[in-house]
Design a binder for these strands. Structure first.
Length: 425
RNA sequence: GCGAGCGUAGCCAAGUGGUUAAGGCAGCGGAUUGUGGUUCCGCCAUUCGAGGGUUCGAGUCCCUUCGUUCGCCCCA
């Protein structure tokens, strides 16, 4: 192909798919507004150091997945691989903490990770995320989870499971990590290859290995939950109690560890059985130390991110969405008629109707065919005779019924049949 | 970064070494020079992702490359 195509891992969202996105976005906005979350928009690129410090230098995201390059001022900048870092940076930079109380923020936009694309994974993808900053209360964890659950429920997505875990504080996690290494070391030879590497690099990641043999060995491994201190323990208990109270089903999953370094205490994922290997639709947790690590005041926080491409895949499995039908389709032929059609169409639009005008100049038969396909409830017809008489023929597509209306009377006429039009649309 | 599958028109595709690249959908034109969901007719790939090679001959075999799909890693 000589022509330029979209880059690997990027794709166009065409009009017929956009209706899914619009529905998802409008439902999410509505629910987030009701939960008193406020939208924040941060830049798509940031200083590379921001992500290195927040996500963790040792993570794959930072180590090999970032779109990092030098700009013309020789600054190292990175296309954001996730949303939390930018939101926290903004929170600190603008002193949002000084506005007192808790900040409930949400964002929606593209993220970039240099990975091999596969089902539910692209290099440019979109996330919707929420962050609750300024409170350590486990009630915030629950509120965040609940708002995610509400969005998913409103969208009608089925067969989801909420996986819940607590990874405690960094201190208790150190202890657990040591115990896990101690337990696994004798089995090292029996672990899958990746997990053998991880044993000294990042042992917690062995927990979510997909290898069956590794999972079998993990059956009798120590559990993170046994290493929680009293505070973590009671926080986790309260989270569970409140979720139960709210009727939000969850499963404790002690194998759930999250990939980004900044998490502590509550972590969770919402997974779907219908997405293949990339099952996680929502992932999040508490990150009490991140704000201070990025130079802000001590600010505990909790948040999650939702993978929108994955959501769209699920939505498409449900009821198919169709493009919105229009009210009027304007058919015209002949110089005078075609010019009058422009005016007629524009007037109707200013009255609040949706109007498509046929610009082809082809035979009436062809134009009617397109009118039919447009799904318009009515057709407006202008030919030489109508142009001469300054009238228009209004034809109801469903019944075929048709009559003459003077162009001057058209605003009144269509206003009087507004009900009929919207019902037919 | 690793493994496997696949790339024929806008879309879905047949074709598996012999040459005139099926068919369907969509589109366009006509039957119907001013009236739509049906029907009928016609048009729509000098070319099979790209480049190279083998062969008398390649969409069909080989190599390279790009893209894509599924998985691993990782993550939303």
């Amino acid at each position: 192909m000589g022509s330029i195509e979209a880059l690997r891992g990027t794709r166009d969202i065409l009009p017929e798919e956009v209706c899914y996105w619009q529905r998802l976005e409008s439902i999410a906005r509505d629910i987030l507004a009701r939960a008193a979350f406020h939208e924040i928009r941060t830049p798509i690129f940031e200083q590379t150091a921001l992500f290195e410090r927040s996500i963790g230098e040792a993570t794959d995201v930072v180590g090999k997945e970032m779109y990092t390059f030098k700009d013309r001022g020789d600054r190292s900048i990175t296309l954001r691989p996730e949303g939390t870092a930018g939101v926290v940076r903004s929170y600190i930079e603008h002193g949002l903490h000084a506005q007192g109380g808790v900040q409930r923020l949400w964002y929606l936009g593209p993220m970039f990770r240099y990975e091999r694309p596969q089902a539910g994974r692209q290099r440019q993808f979109h996330q919707l995320g929420v962050e609750v900053l300024g409170t350590a209360s486990p009630r915030a964890d629950v509120e965040a989870i609940a708002v995610a659950a509400d969005i998913l429920k409103a969208l009608g997505v089925k067969d989801l499971s909420l996986q819940l875990n607590s990874i405690g504080t960094s201190e208790s996690r150190q202890q657990y990590r040591a115990a896990l290494v101690q337990y696994l070391t004798p089995y090292k030879a029996d672990l899958d290859e990746d997990s053998q590497d991880r044993l000294d690099r990042n042992p917690l990641r062995i927990l979510d290995s997909k290898d069956e043999k590794t999972q079998a060995i993990l059956e009798k491994a120590p559990s993170v939950l046994d290493f929680l201190d009293d505070d973590s323990r009671s926080r986790f208990d309260l989270v569970q109690a409140l979720l139960t109270e709210l009727g939000i089903a969850y499963q404790i999953n002690t194998r759930l560890v999250r990939g980004l370094d900044y998490y502590s205490h509550t972590v969770f994922e919402i997974q779907s059985a219908d997405l293949g290997a990339q099952a996680t639709v929502v992932g999040g947790g508490r990150y009490d130390k991140l704000v201070t690590e990025l130079g802000g005041p001590d600010t505990p926080a909790v948040g999650w991110a939702m993978g929108l491409e994955r959501m769209i895949l699920l939505l498409k499995q449900l009821a198919p969405q169709t493009k919105a039908a229009i009210d009027f389709y304007v058919v015209s032929r002949g110089d005078q008629a075609e010019q009058q059609a422009v005016i007629v169409a524009q007037n109707l639009r200013q009255q609040g109707f949706s109007v498509e005008m046929d610009l082809s100049g082809s035979a009436f038969g062809k134009q009617f065919k397109r009118a039919d396909r447009s799904g318009a409830s009515a057709c407006l017809i202008l030919g030489d005779a109508e142009a001469e008489a300054k009238t228009v023929q209004l034809k109801w597509m469903a019944s075929g019924e048709q009559h003459v209306v003077a162009q001057a009377d058209l605003p009144n006429y269509v206003a009087s049949v507004r009900q009929q039009i919207s019902a037919a649309t």
